[in-house]
Amino acid sequence: MGFKLLSKLLVYLTASIMAIASPLAFSVDSSGEYPTVSEIPVGEVRLYQIADGVWSHIATQSFDGAVYPSNGLIVRDGDELLLIDTAWGAKNTAALLAEIEKQIGLPVTRAVSTHFHDDRVGGVDVLRAAGVATYASPSTRRLAEVEGNEIPTHSLEGLSSSGDAVRFGPVELFYPGAAHSTDNLIVYVPSASVLYGGCAIYELSRTSAGNVADADLAEWPTSIERIQQHYPEAQFVIPGHGLPGGLDLLKHTTNVVKAHTNRSVVE
């Protein structure tokens, strides 16, 4: 069995187990497998329904001669939608809004960016022009300005110390501490036991640490421990890039980060 097929099978099995364990909360999309990078042309966006009122959005972007996937989250909030992270750029984010209108038909009224990198804030200006209120932590807003990236308009308070959590509509926002970046936030959907790890969490097929220019490698494993301790009931975990899975993604990420750190020390 090929690795790609095995990865998709694991996603399907995880979703099936969740649907059985929580039949009222989960209505997993039966329309197909989780979209992969090879299936999404740059400039297009796919939506994948995880649970009743919960979707991931998947886009792709060219970077350094390669094409990478990027995940975000959409959560229903009454007759409105909360968006977590842009679709990595203005063109993708405009396509995301169009796809949401086509498939869901509810307005996106608020959006949260989970850290300051372009795959999370690139497209904020498109959201703002569409009347979406954009939010991020003060740290993310400051770092985005320093980096020359787009800056969300509103500040999220109460997320300055490791372990801080605040309720934001249908989700809980959690600051686990520094990891992929010093400002990275985690998003949890309690009604569906869905954990969105953003770039602080890796997919299972990833074996290298990737972009760690703004990471705190020493603190990252401790931050992941905080996530595990705060959300032990999480059933569906979405990484910032690639295929979702279960809580095993947290341990896998820790292993990859520690291996990278150990290699760096040896070198």
Score class of each variant (00 low, 15 high):
residue 1 M to F: 04
residue 4 K to E: 07
residue 10 L to T: 14
residue 12 Y to P: 03
residue 13 L to K: 11
residue 17 I to H: 04
residue 17 I to Y: 08
residue 22 S to P: 11
residue 25 A to E: 12
residue 25 A to P: 13
residue 27 S to V: 14
residue 28 V to C: 06
residue 28 V to A: 12
residue 30 S to L: 12
residue 31 S to P: 08
residue 33 E to I: 09
residue 36 T to D: 14
residue 36 T to Y: 09
residue 36 T to I: 14
residue 37 V to Y: 15
residue 37 V to M: 14
residue 38 S to D: 12
residue 40 I to C: 06
residue 41 P to W: 08
residue 43 G to K: 08
residue 46 R to Y: 11
residue 47 L to D: 03
residue 48 Y to N: 15
residue 50 I to L: 07
residue 57 H to G: 00
residue 58 I to D: 02
residue 59 A to S: 15
residue 62 S to T: 07
residue 63 F to I: 14
residue 65 G to P: 05
residue 68 Y to P: 03
residue 68 Y to E: 15
residue 69 P to K: 15
residue 72 G to I: 00
residue 72 G to A: 00
residue 75 V to Y: 02
residue 75 V to K: 02
residue 78 G to I: 07
residue 79 D to N: 10
residue 82 L to H: 03
residue 84 I to M: 07
residue 87 A to N: 03
residue 88 W to H: 00
residue 88 W to I: 00
residue 90 A to W: 08
residue 93 T to H: 05
residue 95 A to L: 15
residue 104 I to S: 00
residue 107 P to S: 13
residue 110 R to E: 09
residue 112 V to D: 06
residue 113 S to L: 04
residue 114 T to P: 01
residue 114 T to R: 01
residue 119 D to C: 02
residue 121 V to Y: 03
residue 127 L to D: 04
residue 130 A to N: 11
residue 131 G to Y: 06
residue 137 S to T: 14
residue 137 S to Y: 03
residue 139 S to T: 13
residue 140 T to R: 03
residue 149 N to E: 10
residue 151 I to A: 07
residue 154 H to T: 12
residue 160 S to P: 08
residue 162 S to T: 09
residue 168 F to L: 08
residue 169 G to D: 05
residue 174 F to R: 02
residue 175 Y to Q: 02
residue 176 P to K: 01
residue 179 A to E: 04
residue 180 H to C: 01
residue 180 H to P: 02
residue 182 T to F: 15
residue 182 T to M: 13
residue 182 T to V: 11
residue 184 N to D: 05
residue 184 N to Q: 03
residue 186 I to Q: 02
residue 188 Y to G: 01
residue 188 Y to P: 00
residue 193 S to Y: 15
residue 198 G to I: 05
residue 199 C to P: 01
residue 201 I to K: 01
residue 201 I to W: 03
residue 203 E to L: 01
residue 205 S to Y: 13
residue 206 R to H: 14
residue 212 V to W: 05
residue 216 D to F: 05
residue 220 W to E: 01
residue 220 W to N: 02
residue 221 P to H: 07
residue 222 T to E: 11
residue 222 T to W: 12
residue 235 Q to S: 10
residue 239 P to W: 00
residue 243 L to I: 13
residue 247 L to K: 11
residue 248 D to R: 08
residue 253 T to W: 01
residue 259 A to M: 10
residue 259 A to V: 10
residue 259 A to T: 09
residue 263 R to C: 06
residue 265 V to W: 12
residue 266 V to N: 09
residue 267 E to V: 04
